[in-house]
Structures are given as structure tokens and as C-alpha cells.
Design a binder for these strands. Structure first.
Length: 596
DNA sequence: AGCGCTGACTCAGAAACTTCGCA
DNA sequence: CTGCGAAGTTTCTGAGTCAGCGC
């Protein structure tokens, strides 16, 4: 272990030592955003040097056959590769999706005439993959160490780029593996092959003076070399196997100066919106009663974006999943109810369902009714405006204002407001303060509709905890009976919580002490455990469909959280993971009085 | 001048992996 | 202590937004 550690340090020295790491903290400069003349002209860097990309390993033939029509058959390498990709998705929800199956079937047919998925049995390949997985899992410590070392060295080599004398972390220097495309929701292309990317398809971006990174695939070379200092990507390519214009990039990591500065700018813009929101709300409210339908739609759409934190909703192609945002809402997505209540039900980004029944301003309700009039369910609700119209209107309200700024603003504003509700929180434990923070965060997640699917394990886990709770309840009663005895004897009792399970956690041991004071203690302890377990279950149930991470990473101004932690003496680690602390390093010195 | 298309960047949840806490 | 499941964190890559450009 010792030796290897030194090797990494030496390597780090060689790779990084020659370069000056970050010479200063950009956020401590007087006016970092405008200090560089180049930036105003759209110039992102003066010097850029990097080490290229890592290509995923080529497909390795395993020669495990497929059972087709009940008979074991030998596959060609191409057939085998596709079948292996299929086997990788067995057990996932994709396996049973109609589009995924249909597309894979026709994909296979290009390599296997008349292939029918129903006739194919991938058991053997699946078994082989499982074997490989176990092999990976059960590697010796020595081997694991060796692999970690190699990973670390790769990371040092590819993971940093030299930008204007400073090293900046690269985000995704490994190209994506070929696999069957798995879209979100009902994606028409799911199940088709997402092809391997070769160096010839890549465009490399670096300084004219910088050495061109070596292309590590023998017999191959980079497609194109450019020197674009108006952009921040290191590589770009088009992954045309799924969509013609599917642009992908190798970019800098979230911890890089570029991303951090953009992040800070984003929150500063949201704060500017906060200062002007009253005037802006007044302006779009005026539009709600305009004689022009277009104006009314503009006002109404802006209201929804502001009030419900909807995304703007650009148009989508036929060959993408049918999802919508504000401007692409269709008549079928809303229901007008009594008392100015409107029910929304549509699939948004990532095909996440937005299902919300909410009371809106009376004029909004009236306008929606007007927009629906005479239209078919599949017609556009906001038929007279486009995303550009809306953003043009917003731009007139405030410099740089677009629809997405409302989401950032409303999210951060909500967090600040929720946390301010806490007042002093004196006398609370750190855990209680963290719970309070989590709850504030949760309100933001609800506003932004950040969801997660309930895990398969959830119901099982819940059942297990409930059984345990029941068990504890009777245990407490039994202990109380036991306490009443004159000379209680000491004994233990095992209770099986999960039927047929031999696992450790499924056994609850009831201990009945022989002394009265010990029994009292046990009762007390068990009651505390019961309460803790119950609270945990409640929290689990409440948060089962809510994803807290997305708002934390993308919508909450980190300075709100830092200030909260300082005021209430909560260690920042309780609120931000290591990655988040690095991403938000510019916000760590925020004063405790700071407000969004 | 207006509109459609391209390009570059931010935002998204699931899966994979790592660490934690408990019996 | 030690091994396990759960919780927390990171990786992965797909899905949005929106500016800018050319016709």
C-alpha cells in the first residue's frame, strides 16, 4: 500500500508539478466577471492544452450461444454483441417495453434474418454476464488495489486540462460505451444500437500552440482539429445513431472555473429577478386582459412559469418522446374545475409526470377557458405564441431574463423563505436542524416537481419496519408485565421478523433482565428505539417519491445553505457532500447574514 | 426582419459504487 | 469485531433551454 501511494504522488508531481495549480481564487477578485477583457468578447481562454479522451474497451467475444427456437445456436460476433447488450437489460424495466423490444428485434434482423425476439432465450448469455459480475465483485484485495492505481493514473492523465496556467478538472473524458439506447419514457428510438464512437468522428479543440494529444487507438486518428477559444469544450462529436443532430461534448467538470463562474452568474441573475419581480408581475398581469389573444397568452404563460415553476416547453421532434412544457401544453393536459382550480396532468422533462391541482388567479382561469374554446384535445393550448415570443417578452422586462431564470429564482426564494421560518432553532440538536433544512429543501423539490420512482425494495422495507415496530410494541408490554413479577428471572427470546429468512437483520432478540432497575432501563431504551424507527419510517414514506438532490445541485443558491449552517452551527458536511462542497467552493466563505 | 435550424451549455433521474451504522 | 443492509454519493448519459446564425 505504502509503495503504491508514493507512486501516485510521484506521478501527480510529474503530471501536475510543472504547472501552477490555481494561482488565485477567482471569487475573491474585485470584479471577476468583468475583469477579463477577453470574456466580454466571448473569449473563454487564451491557452488550452489537454490529453485527449479515453475510449471504452472493444467488445470481447465470449462464444456463449443463444437458445433460439429451443435449440442452442452459435452466433456470429456481431449477433453475439447485440444479444449481449440485450442480456444486459434483462431484469430492467426496458426488457418488457414494447418499443424497446420491437426496435431491438428489427436491429437484430439486420444481422440475423427473420429474427424473432419471442423465439430467443438469452439465459446462457445472462448467466455468463452474471458470472462475470461475480468475478468482478470477488477480486482479491491485491487486484482491487492494482486497478485503483491504474484508475487513479488514468484520472491524472486525462482528468486535467491546462487552461491559462491553471489546471482545470475535465468532466467526462471517457467516451460512452456502445449499448442499446435507453430513452426515457416512450422514446421511439429505444432499443436501437447506440454505436461506438471512433476518433475520426471527433473534433478536438485546443490552442494552436498546444501539442495535439495522441490518439491512443492504433490505426486511427482525430477527425478534425480546431482552435475555438469562444467555447469551453475539449471534444465534440455527433452521435447520429439515435438522432441526426445529437451533439455531444467532452467538457470541463462542475468544479472548473468556467462552470463555477457560470453558476454564480446564474444565481446573481436570479437575485436580480428577485429585485424586479414585483414590477414584472405587474407587467404580465396587465397583459391578462389585453384585447389581443397573443398578449393574453403571453401573460398567462408567464404566470404559469412564475407561479408553478414550469419549464418553457420547446417544440420536439416526432422521433423523441412526447413530453411538454408550458408553451407546448395541449388542451388535453389541463382540466378546468370549479372555483378557479385547474388540474394539470402531463409528462414533462424526462417523461416525469406533472400532476397538480391548483387554485389560480380568476383571470388566469378565465383566460385558459378562452384558449381552450373550440379546440381539440390535441391542439396547442398556447397556440398563438412561441417560446421565442415568450423569451423576447421576458428580455424586455429585464436584461438576460429567460423562462428558466424563474425556476432558479422561485426555488432559491422558497428555500430562503422556508429556512427563515425556522427563526432561532436554539436548543435543537444538529440532527433536528438538518431535518428542518431537509424539509425546506423538500418544499423546493415539490415546487420544481423533482421526482424519483419508488424503489422496488420500498414496500418490502416498509413491511419489515412495520413488523419490527409491532414486535417492539408487544415487547414493551411484555417487559412491563415482567417488571411486575416479584423475582423475575432472566431470559431471552428470538423473534423471526421475516418469514423464511435466515438473515441477521430479520431476527429480533427480546431480552428480559432479572433485575427491576434493568427492566426499567430496557423499557426506556426500547421506547426510544421505537420512536426513532417510527420517525425514520415516516420520513421514508414522505420522501419516497421526492428527489432532493436535483434542487440542491442546480437550483438552490448555495450561499443560502452556507449562511444557514453558519447561523445555526451545523457542519456544512451535513448539508453538502464533498462534491457539492467543491462545486460550491466559491460560496463557502459566505457571511452568516447573507440573504438571497 | 422573421424564422428555422444548429450548437453549446444546463439540468435530470437511474444505476453503480462507497461508506455508515448497527446487531 | 465483523459482516450486512441501508443510506449516501458519484457516475452515467439522456433531455432540456436558448443564443446565434444564415437565408
Amino acid at each position: 500500500m505504502g509503495d503504491k501511494k508514493i507512486k501516485i504522488d510521484e506521478y501527480k508531481e510529474i503530471r501536475l508539478g510543472g504547472f501552477q495549480a490555481r494561482s488565485h481564487n477567482w471569487w475573491e477578485e474585485a470584479n471577476p466577471e468583468e475583469s477579463e477583457e477577453e470574456e466580454q468578447q466571448g473569449q473563454e481562454w487564451r491557452y488550452l492544452e489537454h490529453h485527449g479522451v479515453l475510449f471504452p474497451p472493444f467488445y470481447k467475444r465470449h462464444n456463449v450461444g443463444l437458445i433460439y427456437n429451443g435449440k442452442l445456436i452459435t452466433l456470429t460476433e456481431e449477433q453475439e454483441e447485440l444479444c449481449t447488450y440485450w442480456a444486459q437489460s434483462i431484469g430492467s424495466p426496458y426488457e418488457n417495453k414494447e418499443i424497446y423490444r420491437k426496435n431491438f428485434e428489427s436491429l437484430m434482423q439486420t444481422k440475423f434474418e427473420g429474427f424473432q425476439l419471442d423465439k430467443a432465450d438469452f439465459t446462457k448469455i445472462k448467466e455468463y454476464l452474471e458470472q462475470q459480475r461475480l468475478l468482478r465483485l470477488n477480486k482479491s484485495d491485491e487486484q482491487k488495489k492494482q486497478e485503483k492505481l491504474e484508475r487513479d493514473q488514468r484520472e491524472l492523465f486525462y482528468g486535467y486540462a491546462l487552461v491559462d496556467g491553471c489546471l482545470e478538472r475535465v468532466g467526462n473524458y471517457t467516451l460512452e460505451q456502445p449499448t442499446l439506447f435507453k430513452g426515457r419514457g416512450e422514446h421511439p428510438k429505444a432499443g436501437l444500437l447506440k454505436a461506438r464512437i471512433f476518433p475520426e468522428e471527433l473534433t478536438v479543440n485546443l490552442s494552436t500552440q498546444a501539442p495535439v494529444p495522441q490518439c491512443k487507438l492504433p490505426g486511427h486518428s482525430w477527425g478534425k482539429i480546431v482552435h475555438r477559444n469562444d467555447v469551453t469544450w475539449l471534444f465534440s462529436y455527433v452521435d447520429s445513431s439515435i438522432r441526426k443532430d445529437n451533439h455531444k461534448y467532452v467538457q470541463f467538470a462542475a468544479t472548473s472555473r468556467f462552470k463555477q463562474m457560470n453558476d454564480k452568474r446564474k444565481y446573481e441573475k436570479a437575485r436580480r429577478l428577485k429585485n424586479q419581480i414585483d414590477q414584472i408581475r405587474e407587467n404580465y398581469t396587465k397583459k391578462l386582459q389585453s384585447d389581443s389573444i397573443k398578449e393574453r397568452q403571453l401573460g398567462t404563460a408567464t404566470y404559469l412559469i412564475d407561479k408553478l415553476a414550469l419549464r418553457v416547453g420547446n417544440e420536439k421532434d416526432e422521433d423523441e418522446a412526447d413530453t411538454v412544457g408550458c408553451c407546448s401544453l395541449r388542451v388535453e393536459h389541463i382540466k378546468l374545475k370549479e372555483d378557479d382550480v385547474v388540474a394539470f396532468d402531463f409528462l414533462g422533462k424526462d417523461s416525469m409526470r406533472y400532476n397538480n391541482e391548483v387554485k389560480l388567479a380568476h383571470q388566469i382561469w378565465k383566460n385558459l377557458k378562452l384558449f381552450i374554446k373550440g379546440k381539440q384535445p390535441e391542439d396547442n393550448l398556447f397556440s398563438d405564441i412561441s417560446v421565442d415570443d415568450l423569451n423576447d417578452f421576458l428580455k424586455k422586462q429585464m436584461e438576460g431574463l429567460t423562462a428558466k431564470v424563474f425556476r432558479t429564482y422561485n426555488a432559491s426564494f422558497t428555500l430562503q423563505q422556508q429556512l427563515d421560518l425556522g427563526g432561532k432553532l436554539d436548543g435543537h440538536s444538529v440532527q433536528q436542524k438538518v431535518d428542518f433544512y431537509d424539509n425546506a429543501n423538500k418544499q423546493v423539490a415539490i415546487l420544481c416537481n423533482h421526482q424519483k420512482t419508488i424503489s422496488k425494495q420500498f414496500e418490502l422495507t416498509k413491511k419489515k419496519i412495520n413488523t419490527k415496530l409491532e414486535c417492539m410494541k408487544t415487547y414493551i408490554q411484555e417487559l412491563e408485565q415482567h417488571y411486575k413479577k416479584k423475582n423475575p428471572n432472566e431470559y431471552e427470546e428470538e423473534v423471526q421478523l421475516e418469514e423464511g429468512s435466515q438473515k441477521k437483520n430479520s431476527i429480533f432478540i427480546k431480552k428480559f433482565p432479572g433485575q427491576h432497575d434493568k427492566i426499567k432501563q430496557t423499557i426506556q431504551k426500547t421506547q426510544e428505539k421505537y420512536q426513532k424507527e417510527l420517525k425514520g419510517l415516516e420520513k421514508k414514506e414522505e420522501n419516497k417519491e421526492i428527489a432532493l438532490g436535483t434542487s440542491k445541485t442546480n437550483y438552490n443558491d448555495p450561499r443560502i445553505s452556507v449562511a444557514f449552517c453558519k447561523v445555526h452551527d451545523v457542519p456544512i458536511e451535513r448539508v453538502f457532500s464533498k462534491t457539492l462542497r467543491n462545486k460550491f467552493i466559491w460560496a463557502m466563505a459566505t457571511d452568516s447574514n447573507w440573504k438571497f
